[in-house]
Simulated scan of single mutants.
Amino acid sequence: MKFEHLIEVNDLANPLLTVLSREEVWFGLLCRAEDSRAFLPGLERCTILERKEGELLRELNFGQVSIRDRVLFSELEWISFESEATAEHAGGKLVISIEEPEAGVLFLRFVYSTSLPDANGSEEAKYADIVRSAYHQSDIDTMKVIRMIAESGRLQ
């Protein structure tokens, strides 16, 4: 299954919303790579197994379920999470890229590729819709966490 969507970072028409810089958004994405517990409900432990330039190998523990993934990134541009398929997890890839069509107008593009089938049958289609909806909500929550991280680091 492939799925992608955009999340607006800065709503310039809303004066109550703090405008985030590309650097603040990037820092939030790096926080997600270093320790995803604030971003993934149910994640109990995030262990970095290996660290290289522009790459992390991690183990994510959700109770009895353990998932390994590889995080690749290009600074201030994109970050990719690729998880291995297991009996408990379908595996897949998520790429989050920062897009800035105009100065200060930031979006995060989330692109998912999973081993789940692109469903045409009724039951499979319903399941795919549920998964897409869950991904979308998770990405909205990711933006909320990034915003909280950025705002907590600002001087008042």
Score class of each variant (00 low, 15 high):
residue 1 M to W: 01
residue 5 H to T: 13
residue 7 I to R: 01
residue 8 E to P: 13
residue 9 V to N: 00
residue 10 N to R: 03
residue 12 L to G: 05
residue 14 N to L: 00
residue 15 P to Q: 09
residue 18 T to D: 01
residue 22 R to W: 12
residue 24 E to K: 07
residue 25 V to Y: 04
residue 25 V to D: 06
residue 26 W to M: 07
residue 27 F to N: 07
residue 28 G to A: 09
residue 31 C to S: 14
residue 34 E to W: 12
residue 34 E to C: 12
residue 39 F to Y: 10
residue 42 G to A: 07
residue 43 L to D: 02
residue 44 E to I: 15
residue 44 E to F: 05
residue 45 R to K: 15
residue 45 R to I: 00
residue 47 T to D: 14
residue 47 T to W: 03
residue 54 G to Y: 03
residue 59 E to M: 14
residue 61 N to R: 15
residue 69 D to N: 13
residue 70 R to W: 07
residue 73 F to N: 00
residue 73 F to A: 10
residue 74 S to R: 11
residue 79 I to M: 00
residue 80 S to L: 08
residue 84 E to I: 10
residue 84 E to P: 02
residue 87 A to D: 13
residue 89 H to V: 11
residue 90 A to N: 10
residue 91 G to A: 11
residue 93 K to S: 14
residue 95 V to G: 00
residue 100 E to H: 08
residue 100 E to N: 10
residue 101 P to M: 06
residue 104 G to C: 08
residue 104 G to R: 02
residue 106 L to Y: 01
residue 106 L to T: 06
residue 109 R to W: 04
residue 109 R to F: 09
residue 110 F to I: 10
residue 112 Y to L: 03
residue 112 Y to P: 06
residue 118 D to Y: 13
residue 118 D to P: 13
residue 119 A to E: 08
residue 120 N to K: 11
residue 121 G to I: 05
residue 121 G to A: 14
residue 121 G to Y: 03
residue 121 G to C: 09
residue 124 E to C: 08
residue 126 K to Y: 00
residue 126 K to V: 12
residue 127 Y to Q: 07
residue 129 D to F: 04
residue 130 I to S: 08
residue 131 V to G: 07
residue 133 S to F: 06
residue 134 A to C: 02
residue 141 D to P: 00
residue 141 D to S: 15
residue 142 T to Q: 00
residue 147 R to G: 13
residue 154 R to H: 02
residue 155 L to K: 04
residue 155 L to D: 08
residue 155 L to N: 05
